[in-house]
Amino acid sequence: MKIKKMEYFFELFLGGLTRGSIYALIALGYTMVYGIIELINFAHGEIYMIGSFTALIVASVLTLKGFNQISILILASLAAIIYSGAYGYTLEKIAYKPLRHAQRLSPLISAIGMSIFLQNYVLLAQTSDFLPFPNLIPEFEFWEPYSHIIGSPQLVIILVTIIIMVLLTILIKYTKIGKAMRATAQDKNMAMLVGVNINHVISITFIIGSVLAAVGGVLIASHIGMINFYIGFIAGIKAFTAAVLGGIGSIPGAVIGALILGWTESFATGYVSSDYEDVFAFALLVFILIFKPAGILGHSDAQKV
């Protein structure tokens, strides 16, 4: 009896970790963009949705051509990454850059507008129905003995997320562009005065955020098996919640916030009822914002001048 309970707990824990990983991939885009231009990019969820759609189209074509599962996964992901990256880049150029010196509210409204526009664009260009998404992540044979604890797809999601986090950390901490991103986030004018082309840095930030969202989009669509034009909105809201929970603008914060959110939902579903997962998720958000308004790792802007 006791062992059964432990196993159930463990299952929920891993389920939460999988969810959290996906939220983290999307939340990073919100938090990086906010960190650098203090804009909540409400169209970020749509970039993720476009990533899933691109992957679905490419995967369908490749399946007809008789490619094997692994190569489909890789090619579809690559297509999604390129497409979403291009959308993210263009989005910034069209909808946000012209408004950079406008009042704070203007780019926010522009973001909401782009979100609605992209949703409807996919709705019209594709369909309003749920489309089945092929399972692109293979079941590994060597993993068979452990698959009752955690399936290969979930394992892949968690591993890919970890790898991406490590790469992103290296990029931000040690590379020249990473330093430029941090410098731009801290003081834009000063970054310009040392020779940083901040337009370039902002574009790269949008592209990185979009690429992460695309990876998340392919992984989750393949895991759940269905997509439609509206998935970006829901995933976007959740990931945004995760970013705020962890402290918007903070990269480790987004990951921690995403994991906490994933576990909260998973345990709420497992021990209470799946109807209440959102209630618990948002109650947690309210609770944390009451006691720590800047989020778990966020710092309020009191710095020495």
């Binding site: 330093k179 003081d187 000063m190 005065l193 020779g195 940083v196 020495k304 001048v305």
Partner: peptide, 22 residues
């Protein structure tokens, strides 16, 4: 610039690296 404008969350070495950015 006036007020120094040191990047507060970069280390001293990283601040110098930023000076040599180009």
């Amino acid at each position: 610039p006036e007020g120094r404008r040191i990047f507060p969350y970069l280390t001293v070495i990283e601040n110098l690296d930023m000076g040599a950015f180009l």
